[in-house]
């Protein structure tokens, strides 16, 4: 479990996050939402140990994050970055790279690593992609491969930075279904999302950030009832009740 305690972080000469306190609970899907530049990606990077912290601290399984080696962090936390290069390798090999934190020297994959990678690709519905070269895949298919790589890491926490961007609606829903399934397995799943409506209907908890600070944290319905999303985003969010639950829309 990751706990951010009064966390301040950013880049050299520019602090982006100011005093954020937030916990990523196992078995729950948390969406980070907020206007552009509010620090959502910075928060994820800091939680993954990729940014130095300028104030507060991050606890990973109750111990300060800096006491772990990069590999130890990678065995506990998977991070799907926003920018994803497209290496000229097969999808299956790409997914196998997710096992890197678990490999000793000389980085030779064992049978159980191949099995884990195979299962990860199956879990995202991408078994048929295993032989294909990554550059030949569509955006949605590449996303599946990246997700499978993160799953192959077999971590208790999965951080995804804009996993639904550039995907068609069908693929977006697949990603959200997968996130729910992963949470069902007891993992903490944290997503940066831009689509408020998607976030409102598919996650357990929403953390609303603005100007580097945590403005609000709660279940989607609580945030909707408080009207805080409308104020921060400057939109009017509406909803209708359907047999599948609340569906949100911009008025």
């Amino acid at each position: 479990m990751i706990e951010l305690q009064n966390l301040s972080a950013g880049y050299p000469g520019r602090e982006v996050l100011h005093g954020v306190t937030l916990t990523f609970h196992p078995g729950r899907v948390l969406a980070l939402v907020g206007p552009n530049g509010c620090g959502k990606s910075t928060l994820l990077r800091a939680a993954a140990g990729l940014l130095s912290v300028s104030g507060g601290q991050i606890l990973l399984d109750s111990a300060p994050l800096e006491t772990y080696t990069p590999k130890e962090i990678a065995r506990r936390v998977a991070f799907l970055p926003q920018s994803r290069p497209v290496p000229s390798i097969t999808a299956s090999r790409m997914v196998l790279h997710g096992r890197f934190p678990h490999l000793g020297y000389p980085r030779r994959c064992r049978a159980k690593d191949h099995r884990a990678a195979e299962q990860a690709l199956a879990q995202v519905g991408g078994t048929d992609l295993s032989h294909r070269m990554v550059p030949e895949l569509s955006g949605g298919q590449r996303q599946k491969v990246y997700l499978a790589m993160a799953l192959a890491q077999d971590t208790a926490t999965i951080l995804m930075d804009e996993p639904t961007t550039y995907l068609d609606v069908g693929c977006q829903l697949e990603v959200m279904t997968l996130a729910r399934r992963l949470a069902g397995q007891g993992r903490a799943v944290i997503l940066v999302l831009h689509d408020l409506c998607l976030a409102m209907q598919a996650v357990d908890e929403i953390a609303l950030l603005a100007e580097g600070r945590l403005v609000s944290l709660g279940e989607p319905e609580e945030l909707f009832a408080a009207g805080i999303l409308d104020r921060v985003f400057g939109v009017a969010l509406g909803r209708v009740n359907t047999p599948d639950g609340w569906r949100y829309y911009y008025q």
């Binding site: 990729l50 990069p70 990678a74 991070f79 994803r84 290069p85 890197f100 000389p106 980085r107």
Partner: peptide
């Protein structure tokens, strides 16, 4: 040749490589 595995991971991009535990 001994570092080929690390080079493979590095080719995934700096951020992904770091998130996989590579220095």
């Amino acid at each position: 040749v001994a570092l080929a595995g690390e080079l493979d991971v590095l080719l995934l991009g700096q951020e992904t490589a770091r998130s996989l535990g590579l220095r």
